[in-house]
């Protein structure tokens, strides 16, 4: 297993970097999209509420792999030419944003309603109150679950291997299928994933405990 690292550290490093890169990009965009749909869900507008609900339910109930393959196999033929990394990252973003929307919505609803009313009474518009008063508090509540979403995202980014996304799983698989040392290669890849996910997961548990 050590020899896998010794002989293939360059490929593994590229994969490790791509996995991190894709997870960070997907986290950034899914936070924006997710928060937007979460706000839709708590807005008084019935239309936006339904729109938010439909978006969340659709992306939560379809496998990430199907979404990713759609962007990889279908979109380049009919819309715009994108490579595997981009297709996979878009799929990951859309998929995760549905979960983040649910998390953020729960966070917003956990903030005391009096906060919103108080802010409105002090002359803030709904959006101002949302942005400045409610969301900052909501995010405090949702940091641990968001952290867990990020861990899920790092794990889920392995579907990029299906769409030639050059992520850690893809690189590992390439090494395994050229050296046929499947056993040790997959263990090596597993250790690299754990380097990202395990500390994060312990930190999130620590945060959860601290926040009680």
């Amino acid at each position: 297993m050590i020899s896998v690292f010794q002989q293939h550290w360059q490929e593994l490093l590229v994969g490790f970097g791509n996995t991190l890169l894709c997870s960070v990009i997907a986290l950034f965009f899914s936070l924006i999209i997710g928060s937007t749909f979460a706000i839709f869900e708590v807005l008084p507008s019935r239309f936006l509420h339904i729109l938010g609900r439909v978006y969340i339910e659709v992306f939560r109930n379809i496998p990430l792999l199907v979404i990713g393959m759609f962007f990889y196999a279908v979109v380049p033929q009919y819309v715009v030419s994108i490579n595997g990394f981009t297709a996979g990252t878009i799929g990951l973003t859309l998929y995760t944003s549905a979960f983040i929307a649910e998390t953020v919505r729960a966070g917003i609803q956990a903030v005391d309603e009096g906060q919103m009313e108080g802010a409105r009474a002090n002359g803030l518009t709904f959006m101002q109150a949302m942005w400045q008063i409610v969301l900052p508090q909501a995010f405090r509540y949702v940091i641990p679950p968001l952290g867990n979403q990020f861990i899920n995202m790092v794990k889920n980014s392995s579907v990029l291997a299906f769409v030639a996304g050059f992520d850690l799983m893809y690189q590992g698989d390439l090494i395994a299928s050229t050296t046929f040392d499947t056993f040790n290669t997959y263990i090596a890849v597993g250790i690299l994933y754990l380097i990202i996910t395990l500390p994060l997961s312990y930190y999130m548990r620590y945060l959860e405990k601290k926040m009680g």
């Binding site: 297993m1 040392d181 056993f183 263990i187």
Partner: peptide
């Protein structure tokens, strides 16, 4: 665990 597994293969 790692050492044992490597030894196995």
């Amino acid at each position: 665990v790692m050492v044992t597994l490597s030894a196995c293969t």
